[in-house]
Design a protein around this nucleic acid. Structure first.
Lengths: 194, 194
DNA sequence: GTCTATACGATGATAGAC
DNA sequence: GTCTATCATCGTATAGAC
């Protein structure tokens, strides 16, 4: 519902803003700069948006929703924990490579959300982490996974999936499928060859 | 050499600044706020420091140096790639848990460095990554490691070591040694039990 | 070294003409 | 919807008295 389609001009403003937020950070981006990129005077932006923060809110909450919807779909499948983790890694890679810009902002700038939307964001994040953690714990209980601390596993996996948006560029030597195979291999089997 | 000992008051300013930078980000931290924390009027800060950026510079470059010194010490030992990777994981955990605040700022705020110090910082980082990558590549060549893309391995490991500063709090249930064992186990052997 | 006072630019956002 | 003009506020930093 909140991920509505935007009129073309409004969408263009959001896209240019996301690029600026990604490159310089939310706080370091000024509305004057954004206006220049869009080809408007600063004040004209406010015919399309309510405030600077509205842009950040949409970016952060839309991405949070994508992850939540993704994990819900994966979790209701009748699959083993190993398969679910593989699917989750795939989900992160898919979201990151489909819209590199917005996921970078989502990852790095959420803390500048205002009080109300920050609260909502953190609640969504906690819910995502908690579902992810449960999948890991099930894997440990069924002896599919090593008996590792579930938080160590959770955060190691989550953050090791976060470098993708720093590193991946369309047209890199490694294509998305290979990248995915390699990351799954590394996280599931480790660096060391037995 | 640049990691000099500071007079107590100056040091106090740096410590309070680091806490603010960690909690709110560099740009969102004002000198007025810092002055309040330190118990001075804003202008009085400038009897101790040259500029706001000087603080960020010291934090970022000191930590960069710690990592460089650490990897140099590890790399000149006559050890196997596996042992070196274990030692590197230990280095990251040691630095992160010894001074959680400054390593967080180092990790998250370096991009707000000015032109000159940013250049220096990036050069140090590239040098660190390149030494790390060489260790991984040696491990792959000697068949100690899986034949994975060395960049995928490098960044997965590096970033999976970056969550520690988000998560670790002195007095957490997991002590540092256990944490280290678990992370080494996960990165070297993977999540899956064979 | 600390203070008061202040310079001076940049910020997000609004009012109102067209 | 876009503009010009502008507001109020806050940013880092400096000058100069004590």
């Amino acid at each position: 519902m909140s991920r509505e389609v935007l009129s073309t001009k409004k969408q263009f403003i959001f896209e240019e803003a996301a690029k600026l937020f990604r490159d310089k950070g939310y706080l370091a981006t000024s509305m004057r700069e954004l206006a220049t990129k869009v080809g408007l005077e600063p004040s004209s932006l406010y015919s399309h948006i309510k405030s600077k923060e509205e842009i950040l809110q949409k970016i952060c909450l839309d991405n949070a929703e994508k992850f939540i919807e993704g994990i819900e779909a994966i979790d209701q499948e009748k699959q083993s924990p190993v398969e679910k983790i593989e699917a989750l890694i795939g989900l992160h890679i898919k979201i990151a490579t489909e819209d590199l810009t917005s996921v970078t902002v989502f990852n790095d700038e959420w803390r500048h959300l205002g009080e109300a939307s920050l609260k909502e964001f953190l609640s969504l994040r906690r819910s995502y982490e908690s579902r992810f953690r449960k999948i890991i714990e099930t894997g440990i209980e069924t002896k599919a996974f090593r008996a590792i601390d579930s938080n160590v596993a959770l955060f190691s996996i989550l953050t090791s999936l976060r470098w993708i948006h720093y590193w991946y560029k369309p047209g890199r030597k490694l294509d998305v499928t290979t990248l995915q195979t390699q990351i799954i291999d590394l996280l599931l089997h480790g660096l060391k060859k037995d």
